[in-house]
Simulated scan of single mutants.
Amino acid sequence: MNDADRDLLPEGLEDRLPAQAAAAQRAMRSILDSCDAHGYDRVSPPSIEFEKSLASRMAGVEPRRMFRFVDPASLRTLALRSDITPQVGRIAATSLASRPRPLRLCYAGQVVTIRGDGLDPARERLQLGAELIGSDTVAAAGEIVTLAIAAAQAAGATGLSVDFTLPDLVDTLAAGPLPLAPERVAAVRRELDAKDAGGLADVGGEAYAGLLYAAGPFAAAIDRLAAIDAGGALASRIRALKDIAARVPAGVRITLDPSERHGFEYQSWFGFTLYAEGVRGALGRGGTYRILGAADGSAGEPATGFSLYADPLVARLAAAEAPRDLLFLPLGHDVAAAARLRAIGWRTLAALGENDDAAALGCTHRLDGYDPVKL
């Protein structure tokens, strides 16, 4: 590496400069405080684990998205986490296995993937979230949706909307009221993902075309979903969605896309995506899932949770934030006065030499005797 490129960062990685770092810290504290207020205890798993552990706790986790390397101590394959949720599942299934259920846990930390996701080139992201372990009922889903909204709002997100989905809907219908040969299921999912009615007909999925039109604002979309003749198989799902929607706070827009699967690799019967005004892409996702048991893939525990990926929100908050007051302390200043002002919330910057320039250093005030004076 030559001098011209020695300070370049790898693609998809970036530094947080002071404004962004401060905004990220405040957002993280607000989200965790919101979770704590609702009875969720924080856990903090390590950033590196054995690959086998990270890949075996949730269905759909993709080891190929993880940075992997050999541990020189054990000679086993380690992985840098790409998602904290499986780690929380491991903690619940091992160290906290004897704790009463439902178990409420929250977390925050950086996750890293080998490549970015779609149009987002970022490979390192701040992930924050909460998991309600031991229940995937309608009540649990309702609690998690409202907590995700409250946490996002506490962090400064505005203009929120939530999009509901039913990740395993095709599998459920294919196994019963709208039968599909096993080899056709993947093709039908693909055409539903592409929102292609013609493609659905080509692969023998005409009966599923109604799912394409049962999308949009919740009230109208849920009626269109109810009109699909599925022999009553959708009735309980529709009741559940209505119950969850009833818990969403006023002012939050609700939409439905029953066949949406992007980002729902391990969710089961219910999933949701959270969006915010001025934030590119999804702010977060959540839903119901199962924590797999031992390495034999036993059924494990039901759970419900959400993850917020706060980086786009942090960028918006940092850009909109007004500069903070900063008090310049000249040489020979009154130390007790400075300590008193810090105790009531002032940030101070002490001169180190005669040539220190308060304005050039970004200060907004100067200590004059006992009191701040605006520059």
Rank of each mutant, 00 (worst) to 15 (best):
V70A: 09
D41N: 08
S53P: 01
V70P: 01
S98N: 11
G39P: 12
G39C: 12
P18M: 10
V88R: 01
S44H: 15
T77I: 13
L96F: 10
H38T: 09
R104H: 08
L54R: 05
G116Y: 03
G89R: 00
L80M: 15
D120R: 12
P100N: 06
R101N: 00
P45R: 04
S30T: 05
S82Q: 06
A92C: 06
R76A: 08
I48G: 04
R26W: 04
F67G: 09
M58H: 09
E49Q: 06
F50W: 06
P121H: 10
F67C: 10
V61T: 11
T77M: 14
F69C: 05
A22T: 14
E51W: 02
T77A: 09
L75M: 15
L96W: 02
D36S: 12
R115I: 10
S74E: 01
P18G: 15
S34Q: 14
V61W: 05
F67S: 12
D117K: 11
R64P: 00
D120V: 04
G109R: 08
G39Y: 13
T85F: 03
D71A: 06
L80S: 05
S82I: 05
Q25L: 08
Q87Y: 01
A59I: 15
S47Q: 04
P45A: 08
P86M: 06
V88A: 03
L17P: 08
C106A: 12
G60R: 13
T85L: 03
A24W: 02
P100G: 10
A59E: 15
D120E: 05
D83M: 10
L119E: 14
R90I: 04
S30W: 01
R104V: 03
L32T: 05
V112W: 08
S44F: 11
A59D: 15
R104S: 06
I114S: 11
P86G: 03
H38W: 14
G89T: 02
M58F: 13
S74L: 05
A23P: 04
S30P: 02
C35Y: 10
F69G: 00
V61D: 03
G118K: 10
S74T: 13
D117R: 14
M66R: 14
A79E: 00
R29Y: 06
S44V: 12
A79I: 01
F67K: 11
S56N: 09
A27I: 15
C106N: 04
S30Q: 07
K52W: 13
R81N: 10
V70M: 13
G116R: 07
M66Y: 13
P45T: 05
C35V: 01
D71S: 11
V111N: 02
F67L: 15
R90A: 07
S47A: 14
T85E: 04
R29H: 12
S82G: 15
P18C: 12
S47T: 10
Q110A: 14
F50K: 07
A27N: 08
F69P: 01
G39V: 12
D36K: 11
R57Q: 05
A24I: 04
A27Y: 08
Q87I: 07
G109W: 02
V70Q: 06
L119P: 10
L75G: 09
M66S: 14
R99V: 01
S98W: 03
I114R: 15
P18W: 12
